[in-house]
Write a protein that binds this DNA or RNA. Structure first.
Length: 804
DNA sequence: TTAGGGTTAG
């Protein structure tokens, strides 16, 4: 009862592992450490202790005061039984006070009920009430009531009040009605800094960044000087959208225009945060070190920044220094640090933070638990995540989504769908975030049926499809082989950001639609959407898969010349792949030699693969030597080399490589194929016998091999890595994961329906040949998505034209 | 001024 958690101060409160208890409500003086704030009503600029408007009670106190007001029927003067609130309030002010208190305590619905009651009782609604009520409407996304209140403000003549208008902008933007928000903003005769920053923030929140930036430019042009507080929020805006150029401009502007000494720490902290989020840790650190007085917020931003940049030791050092300087972490500190640990996959640090939270008297709030669940999920520790998740008595949509996303990340399709079912059963309404996790999972594992089901669920439940969800859907349909559905969804979008364009371009690339991808990019340019490095990876892949060498070269040049994007090592990898596949091996090699960056395994690997296609053992040796230096453990390169030597009849070299392989033992990322049947995903490793229908699957496999041989198939044993005899090699080939998945598909689906398989590596030569024949023998369309692209097998041939 | 879950590539 009456317990309020205060910020934990482990060193000061070593004996207080239990939450502090504050005095009962009836007791006269509030402890100074509790979270009570002196709240300001819109028009009051100074704290006025002793008036109700400057005091925000917690929920329980609000309810008690509410009960008291009901008892006195709002008629008598209000006596709040707390010393600073011995005060007399009119009926209207009593309502205002209650409405504000409920909103501050996150109970907007009760606030709105009170407002309705107030109107019914003809109590005067004033320009103090309206912004408060609008805030509640915004928080609850009740645009209808918000509009009604807007109408009331118009009738009462308060539509010219800056506070009322600012609240209207905020309300409309929270309800997603940006056009109306802008209308209110445009019609204002007098705007203050808050009006501008609210409107700008609305655009940022809804990811309409172009408009936000334009508005900032307008503001400069009109010489509107934002308030110093608004400047801080603009800095944090550029931090959020990681726009260092604008962030720096704001830095210069702030340096020229701010003079309020009290705001030095918050302003500098916001700048530290901006530089951190824009990736300039060193500069952030310089600013931070220059701060004579550092707040807990400053420490939080800086330490979180170190972790974000993977400077874990420095982060830990700063954390200790912070404690030494007697600044103690609050819940937001811990949240920030846990989130950043998750983002860089720092499991050990994450666990340490978890322990720190438990040891130092923090209550395990849903927010903290969610951040921890997410951190464990991102570090691949789904079991830890699940244990913590299960330990939380009350769960909300956020933690549910975080757990589902953990499963999604681990490709645990069946667990994710089970949890999703449980979520619905317990009456928690899934939202866009939940759906994005599920849809992207379907995309990753190629679960088309489940993806379609989730999509229909989204429509049925009228879950709004925002940019992110639409991107996930476009990506899912493209990755599940339904590129046309993806295109349809893409073209129907009213608001496309660069990521959505990227998803579509990448999708077309996977399907070998090079020309279409290039056309789409031209359209993207025309619409003024800024491409990023991912866009160019998609484009180069598209050119590579369609053999468009000249286009690829043009795109590669364009990247730097037209968009100022320096090619990364991935882009060089794509270019080497493009040139190599097209047989321009020397040109590819020259490109590698001229690279300003250190070539990695992807770059050399692309060259090696090209040497295999075009039978160039000498250059292959060069590539393989580099690869083995970079990754001595990976025997895949030796295998590839032995195949290359074999193709050129260099048997002595073949024997040499085989010996090296035997000495080292074979290590290679295991192949994994999956197939979806009736919404459940079945995974197969090579020679897998864990499936419940194993016997049937192997019977089918035997039949498949028999029919293949009758059709003239001879196993291509050169792709087998192990040093075993020919017969064993043949058996190994037959048990390749994609063949097992195919057998599973053939026995589990109706004749004539397409079979869809997803493989984590590239399809091997032998399986490719076999699948072509199987598509003819069984009269099935077989769609295989491998690591690189789609293969549509039909009537004995493949859409890749044997070029992959 | 720091603030729980989501999209493209790898």
């Amino acid at each position: 009862m009456d317990q309020i958690m205060v910020t934990a101060k482990p060193h000061l409160l070593s004996s207080t592992l239990l939450p502090l208890t504050i005095q009962k409500l009836q007791q006269p003086i509030l402890p100074s450490k509790c979270k009570f704030k002196f709240n300001q009503t819109p028009h009051s600029n100074s704290d006025q202790p002793g008036t109700a408007s400057s005091f925000t009670p917690n929920l329980e106190q609000t309810q008690q005061i509410h009960a008291h007001m009901i008892k006195t029927q709002f008629d008598h003067t209000l006596q709040i039984p707390l010393k600073p609130l011995q005060t007399h309030l009119s009926r209207g002010a009593q309502y205002n006070f209650l409405i504000t208190s409920y909103i501050k305590n996150n109970r907007p619905k009760i606030a709105l009920q009170l407002y309705t009651q107030m109107r019914r009782m003809d109590t005067q609604v004033d320009n103090f009430t309206i912004p408060t009520v609008l805030k509640a409407c915004g928080q609850s996304c009740l645009e209808f009531l918000g509009r009604e209140t807007h109408g009331f403000a118009l009738k009462s003549g308060w539509d010219s009040d800056v506070f009322v208008c600012n609240a209207l902008i905020q309300m409309y933007s929270e309800c997603g009605s940006l056009v109306l928000a802008r209308l209110v903003f445009d019609q204002m005769t007098e705007r203050d800094g808050v009006s501008w920053s609210t409107m700008i923030n609305s655009y940022v929140r809804n990811r309409v960044l172009g408009e936000a930036l334009e508005l900032i430019r307008d503001m400069y042009c009109m010489q509107v000087k934002p308030s110093e507080v608004a400047m801080i929020s603009m800095v944090s805006l550029f931090a959020d959208i990681t726009d260092m150029k604008m962030g720096k401009a704001m830095h210069a502007y702030v340096a020229r225009n701010s003079s309020n000494e009290k705001l030095v720490v918050p302003t500098t902290t916001a700048l530290v945060d901006m530089y951190v989020k824009c990736g300039n840790l060193a500069y952030a650190r310089r600013l931070f070190d220059g701060l004579a007085q550092k707040s807990i917020v400053s420490w939080t931003a800086m330490i979180a920044g170190c972790i974000r940049c993977n400077e874990l030791e420095e982060g830990a050092k700063l954390f200790n220094r912070m404690l030494e300087e007697r600044k103690f972490p609050n819940e937001i500190t811990m949240l920030s640090l846990v989130i950043e640990s998750g983002s860089v996959g720092a499991l050990e640090l994450g666990k340490w933070l978890h322990a720190y939270i438990l040891r130092n008297g923090f209550s395990m709030s849903l927010a903290l638990a969610t951040a921890l669940v997410d951190m464990y999920g991102k570090c691949g520790e789904t079991e830890y995540a699940r244990a913590l998740f299960d330990s939380m008595e009350n769960k909300d949509v956020m933690i549910w989504s975080a757990m589902i996303s953990a499963y999604a990340r681990a490709h645990r399709t069946n667990q994710a769908s089970l949890l999703f079912a449980r979520m619905r059963d317990s009456g928690i309404r899934p939202n866009q975030v939940t759906m994005v996790s599920l849809i992207s999972l379907c995309a990753e594992v190629g679960a088309l049926d489940l993806g379609k089901w989730v999509h229909s669920y989204i429509n049925q439940q009228r879950i709004e499809v925002d940019v992110i969800l639409r991107t996930a859907l476009v990506d899912m349909y493209a990755k599940c082989g339904e590129i046309d559905v993806g295109l349809r969804l893409f073209h129907k979008a009213t608001n496309r950001d660069s990521r959505m364009w990227n998803a579509m371009i990448t999708g077309l690339a996977m399907h070998g639609c090079g020309k279409e991808a290039l056309e789409l990019f031209e359209e993207m340019e025309r619409q003024g959407v800024k491409p990023n490095d991912v866009t160019f990876i998609g484009l180069l892949h598209a050119c590579s898969h369609a053999g468009l060498v000249a286009d690829g070269k043009r795109v590669f040049k364009k990247m730097l010349h037209d968009f100022g994007l320096a090619p990364k090592v991935e882009h060089y990898g794509c270019m080497v792949d493009l040139l190599g596949r097209a047989g321009k091996l020397d040109e590819a090699h020259e490109l590698i030699k001229s690279m300003p960056l250190e070539p990695n395994t992807i770059v050399w690997g692309s060259l090696l693969a090209a040497c295999k296609i075009h039978k160039s053992p000498d250059l292959a040796e060069v590539a393989a030597r580099q690869l083995l230096e970079l990754e001595p453990q990976n025997c895949g390169y030796n295998v590839l080399m032995s195949n290359i030597y074999a193709a050129s009849n260099r048997w002595i070299d073949v024997a040499g490589v085989r010996k090296a392989l035997k000495d080292k033992g074979t290590k290679k990322e295991p192949g994994l194929s999956s197939i979806e049947v009736n919404g459940a995903v079945h995974d197969f490793m090579m020679g897998d016998k864990t499936h419940p229908r194993t016997r049937k699957i192997y019977e089918m496999l035997a039949e498949m091999i028999k029919k293949l041989k009758e059709a003239g198939y001879t196993p291509n044993t050169s792709v087998v890595l192990q040093n075993i005899d020919e017969e064993e090699k043949e058996t190994a080939l037959n048990y390749h994961s994609e063949k097992l998945a195919m057998a599973c598909g053939l026995i589990s689906t109706a004749a004539g329906t397409p079979i869809r398989i997803v493989k984590n590596l590239r399809v091997c030569d032998d399986c490719h040949t076999a699948t072509k024949l199987l598509s003819k023998i069984y009269g099935r369309v077989i769609i295989v998505r491998d690591r690189n692209r789609f293969h549509h097998f039909r009537e004995g041939s493949c859409s890749c034209g044997d070029y992959w």
